[in-house]
Write a protein that binds this DNA or RNA. Structure first.
Lengths: 219, 219
DNA sequence: ACTAATATCAGGTTATTCCTGATAAGCCTC
DNA sequence: GAGGCTTATCAGGAATAACCTGATATTAGT
């Protein structure tokens, strides 16, 4: 009989071990290798040519997205299923566009994962029910996915965002940049629109995450 | 014989299922319940009074750090082991200070996790070898300092600080906690006084530094 | 030349913060 | 067990900031 051979790629060893246990327990499924990062994943796929690659997007050395891209280009027989902490539209759509055949959030159970495996080996696409409403209609999303959010801001925006995250008030920022407080307000509103962030704390977290400010900036 | 009863708290069902499989396979260990978020974790601990709680720090509804704090205060028999994607000094130290008995990164294998379980039930602290230098290093004073400050806040203060840093408005916080907006204002003013922080961005940075909130998605 | 994006600003309305109080419950102490 | 300390709760009114709408000048792109 044809056994479905699987490769598991995830940074976390406990997770791989547990997942492997669950998948191996299922008749017809067999985990033939594990990978702890992107390069290992590519390596393992080329060596074993498995039917399915299950991978987390967040991987070291080579991003999960890049792994999908390469596998879908050079190992067309191997289907990729994303099993990730990310469950937002941007990642799901981006993964599928890059060649993934399935997407399962880690919130789901093994049952769903097994279904996904069997679905993709039939050549179909498996999308977790939770993502049903995600549509891949417009091109806007693909650009959104590939762009670094910081790049979507103007220099002025970044300048002001930085000052906000450092705790300066609107008036202080105005004085520092020799512009009107009203202008600062407009800039703030605009950059919030672009980042789709609705509150100042969200801006601060974003600024820290993107390296615009660091945490020991005390006031 | 005395079986070690364990509760597993993690957002991701696949992960819980896999982990449970691995732990249950070990003689003497038994996973008696799972929890998908912080409140469920507290609930499960109070119902089962297990020897060990294994939890991820990133949890919905109630932060992992807060779960540790409550468990260590109200369920002294239960030892908490953090099993997290986070492996930075801030989170490790913060978890231990809040009452965790062990910290294992998800990069580690089950063997290490089992060792951690057996170590903490003996009343000792288990720290993953990777973190060995953290406890003794005096380098990151700002981290330690902010943790001390965090302990000077009341429970209510921390609760409100967390919500502020997550981007909730004063009114939203008031509604969430069933108190008046005026009271929330007072709490905010008081905790700002104690922390000697004068602006909201400062609060957000402090909250992140001390592990009260994380940088990931909003909510 | 026309369009889009950027940077600048204002008026007026709404919402929030800041300041100055106040009360009641719980706890430690002497 | 009376008095002080901390905590949690709340209000009125003044000061401030945010929000919405709309406008203009400059540059960059096609």
């Amino acid at each position: 009989m044809n056994e479905i051979r699987i490769i598991l790629a995830d940074t976390h060893r406990v997770f791989r071990q547990g997942c492997r246990e669950l998948l191996d327990a299922e008749p017809g499924l067999s985990v033939v290798a594990e990978a702890a990062d992107g390069l290992e994943a590519i390596d393992a796929v080329q060596r074993h040519l498995p039917e399915v690659l299950i991978l987390e997007l967040m991987l070291h050395s080579l991003d999960g997205m890049e792994v999908i891209r390469r596998v879908s280009r050079f190992n067309v027989e191997t289907r990729s299923i994303v099993l990730s902490t990310y469950s937002d539209e941007v990642h799901v759509i981006s993964a599928l566009r890059n060649g993934a055949s399935g997407y399962v959030p880690k919130e789901a159970g093994v049952e769903e994962l097994k279904t996904a495996v069997r679905t993709v080996v039939r050549g179909e696409v498996f999308l977790s029910p939770a993502f049903a409403e995600y549509t891949f209609s417009d091109g806007h999303l693909s650009t959104l996915a590939s762009l670094d959010l910081l790049e979507r801001l103007t220099q002025r925006h970044r300048e002001i965002l930085k000052l906000i995250a450092e705790g300066r008030t609107t008036n202080e920022i105005a004085q520092a940049l020799f512009i009107s407080a009203k202008t600062v307000e407009t800039h703030r509103a605009n950059l919030m629109l672009r980042l789709e962030i609705r509150d100042v704390p969200g801006l601060v977290r974003f600024a820290i995450r993107s390296g615009l400010v660091n945490l020991d900036h005390d006031g």
